[in-house]
């Protein structure tokens, strides 16, 4: 399984759920997992993260096991069984 942890506005969109467990599949990537996650949701969520051309948006950081996926292989980053993926839209102001 892969644990998807959700924060901020995304959590509110998902009815307050703090996390979702997704079955892991051989060859999984961050992009594939997000697509599978979206397929299981009734409302559009991942458009907050990735646009129609599979480009990452900038308002939410995606961390795989504590590392921003922009420092890995972005949406092509391989995911292993037991990994933790976090979607966090930080507060930008001060």
């Amino acid at each position: 399984m892969v644990l998807l942890r959700i924060y901020g506005t995304l959590r509110m969109m998902l009815g307050g759920r703090e996390s979702v467990e997704l079955p892991w599949r051989e060859g999984d990537t961050v992009g594939a997992l997000l697509a599978r996650f979206q397929a299981g949701e009734r409302i559009p969520v991942t458009h907050k993260l990735v646009d129609d051309r599979c480009m990452l948006h900038t308002g939410t950081i995606i961390l795989l096991n504590r590392r921003n996926i922009l420092h890995l292989d972005r949406l092509e980053t391989p995911v292993r069984d037991g990994d933790v993926l976090a979607l966090f839209p930080p507060g930008a102001g001060g």
Partner: peptide, 29 residues
């Protein structure tokens, strides 16, 4: 610290030991 709307975050880092802040927030515009 950061804040937006009704939400925010707090985090402590040590330079040279922790992940750099700009790596954690990479891509944030």
């Amino acid at each position: 610290g950061g804040v937006q709307g009704d939400r925010g975050q707090v985090l402590t880092l040590v330079k040279g030991e922790s992940q750099p802040l700009n790596e954690i927030y990479a891509g944030s515009v």
